[in-house]
Design a binder for these strands. Structure first.
Length: 377
DNA sequence: AATGAATACAACCGCGAAGTC
DNA sequence: CGACTTCGCGGTTGTATTCAT
């Protein structure tokens, strides 16, 4: 159990990889794939432990990795997902194609965390550091509401992760059959990093996206938008009392293997994976409340507890987050942009940081704009 | 030009989950 | 069913590079 002893062996090299080692590892994986990481180093003629080889491959050598500077869209996605998921880098990475969890984690620690801190936002909680802002009433409840959304998304991600694993197993077995008759390096490389169905977008955020399309660039200022973050669609529905409301109608023709549904049943959260074992799995807790996407009310989700309703307006949410969490692009629209504006990239002006102090407050204000204003939770 | 601080990124470590026997 | 292996994840460290003085 637990720790692998492979790295304890003497004589194994540690530290930075040389180009020769990279070449050996690449050549081996291209030719034979990586079946067993533990056995791989010896077979590939590397004086490394399997773990080190796996890390080097997954974080650096894999051909489907996009390296280099993070785009603004990617930054914003990371911030948003981190607000929802916390330090679950692998989960975040599934929504950032071609980026590794390690890279995202490093980027967060070296760039984004500091940037949020400068903005006066606690990078852990994504709340303003002056907690006095969160009084005992309204806003703290609203934060709890957002926390519920995060819980659901976490549960969904866990379910998706299992789907991905199952899908991977299936595809691997199929491809193994195919590759019996094919030994081309290209095919092997494809096999070796064919992990899963393409990552899907974060469904909790999808209603935000629907407001103005898939992650629209603010002011059209940012290149490299859209394509990098393109995500096939999974179907997610929140429902309560058996009434399902598809959050996303835009099912794309990817080869994703399943549909995941969230079902609220007397306060219990159930997750069903279609194509899986056809069972409803409980992540439940009777204190949770299930959001409903309001098809009649554009861009809104209603949280209903049976006694109380609260509707979150999605209108402007995307813009708000993008405006306040990113920043680099904001300098181009900082003239009289009201609440969403900002300026500079930190090295430029300070207005950006001033405005960004409203990052979370603004989110909460949106939440607080419930038509019913009913006390909740 | 030298040097120390800050930054960025690659890599390692240890733990827990999942899988296998 | 428990022991063991393997893998993946998140936290942390080490090192190279850049910047400031």
């Amino acid at each position: 159990m637990g720790r692998s002893p492979c790295c304890d062996k003497v004589g194994l090299k540690k530290g930075p990889w040389t180009p020769e080692e990279d070449q050996k590892l690449l050549a081996y994986i291209e030719e034979r794939g990586h079946g067993n990481w533990r056995a791989l180093p010896a077979e590939a003629g590397l004086q490394r432990c399997g773990k080190s080889c796996r890390l080097r491959w997954t974080n650096y050598l894999r051909p489907d990795i996009k390296r280099g500077k993070f785009s603004l869209q990617e930054e914003q996605t990371i911030i948003q997902l981190h607000a929802l998921l916390g330090n679950r880098w692998s989960a975040i990475a599934t929504h950032l194609p071609k980026r590794t969890d390690n890279e995202i984690k490093n980027y967060w620690n070296t760039h984004l965390k500091k940037r949020l801190a400068k903005m006066g936002i606690d990078p852990v909680t994504h709340k303003p550091k002056t907690d006095a802002l969160l009084s005992a009433d309204g806003q703290s409840k609203n934060a709890a509401n957002l926390s519920h959304m995060a819980q659901w998304e976490s549960a969904r991600l866990e379910a998706e992760a299992r789907l991905v694993r199952q899908s991977k197993l299936r595809s691997n077995s199929i491809e193994n059959e195919i590759n019996q008759s094919s030994s081309s390096a290209a095919a092997a490389a494809q096999r070796s990093h064919h992990h899963s169905p393409p990552p899907r977008c974060l469904d909790v955020l999808r209603p935000w996206r629907r407001v103005s399309g898939p992650w629209p660039p603010i002011n059209g200022a940012v290149g490299n938008v859209g394509g990098d973050l393109e995500s096939p669609t999974s179907t997610l529905s929140f429902s309560e009392n058996g009434a399902a409301h598809p959050l996303s109608a835009g099912g794309t023709a990817d080869d994703a293997t399943g549909m995941i549904e969230f079902m609220g049943n007397a306060g219990e959260v159930l997750v069903k994976e279609e194509g899986g074992d056809e069972e409803w799995k409980s992540f439940g807790n009777s204190t949770n409340h299930l959001p409903q996407y309001n098809e009649g009310i554009e861009n809104s989700i209603t949280f209903s507890s049976g006694l109380h309703d609260m509707t979150i307006s999605m209108e402007g949410f995307t813009e708000l987050l993008l405006s306040n969490s990113g920043g680099r692009n904001l300098s181009e629209s900082d003239s009289g942009s009201g609440g969403g504006g900002g300026s500079g990239d930190g090295s430029g002006g300070s207005d950006y940081y001033d405005d960004s102090k409203n990052y979370w407050n603004s989110i909460l204000n949106l939440v607080d704009s419930s038509p019913s204003n009913s006390p909740l939770f």
